[in-house]
């Protein structure tokens, strides 16, 4: 497809991992920088522990809210098998930000399917630009494993080269006050990845 200057970010993971909150912060930040932004999220049944995706697109003028296959500039995977599932969305030489974290799906838990071995190593062979983040460990050290979404957001923001924005004020407006401190730390930790 023709490149019309729109930047494409795809955030994927497992329902409940907080991809939507991370996408909201990202979108609001991009908006404050003056971009046209579209963000598309999934609600309902797929959210119940299923594979989920959030699309964020920005540029001078964005048309479709959906990131086309093969057009993502950055694919951020909150779970490593999901990185493999959605990898075809990543354009050639796009950047993969992947959480070194696994969540077994029910077919794996019951033995009906097998969770692939050595995902990170194999992704490193397949993708040139890859950033692997141990977001779960980082978030756990900060006191709450659930903040791994914002750790990954920090890593994503860094790979987009938009660290200079006032992300603190964006987060202050979106994140609940009692979780703000944790999330600011998580974001900073992600940025340094």
């Amino acid at each position: 497809m023709k490149d019309n200057g729109t930047k494409n970010i795809l955030l994927v993971g497992v329902g409940g991992q907080g991809t939507i909150l991370a996408s909201k912060i990202l979108s609001e930040g991009l908006l404050r920088r003056g971009y046209d932004v579209k963000m598309s999220e999934i609600h309902g049944m797929s959210q119940r522990g299923g594979s989920v995706s959030t699309h964020v697109r920005y540029g001078e003028k964005v048309c479709s809210p959906i990131v086309p296959v093969g057009c993502a500039d950055v694919l951020t995977a909150f779970e490593k098998a999901e990185a493999a599932r959605w990898l075809h969305y990543l354009k050639k030489d796009g950047t993969l930000v992947v959480n070194d974290f696994e969540i077994y799906s029910l077919p794996v838990l019951t033995g009906a399917a097998e969770y692939p071995q050595g995902i990170i190593e194999r992704l490193k062979e397949d993708v040139d630009k890859i950033k692997c983040v141990d977001a779960a460990r980082i978030a756990e050290e900060l006191g709450n494993i659930k903040a791994q979404n914002v750790v990954l957001l920090g890593a994503l923001v860094r790979s987009l080269g938009i660290e200079d924005l006032d992300w603190e004020s964006v987060m202050r407006d979106i994140v609940p006050a009692k979780l703000l401190d944790l999330n600011l730390k998580a974001f900073a930790a992600g940025l340094s990845q």
Binding site: R48, G49, G70, G94, S105
Partner: peptide, 27 residues
């Protein structure tokens, strides 16, 4: 795009990792 122009030849990143399904489940 595919409907009117055929397969996009620009290509994309690929892997042959066989990913197990992840259907929604009772929490």
């Amino acid at each position: 795009y595919r409907s009117f122009f055929g397969e996009d030849t620009a290509g994309h990143e690929m892997t042959d990792i066989n990913v197990p399904p992840r259907p929604p489940v009772l929490c």
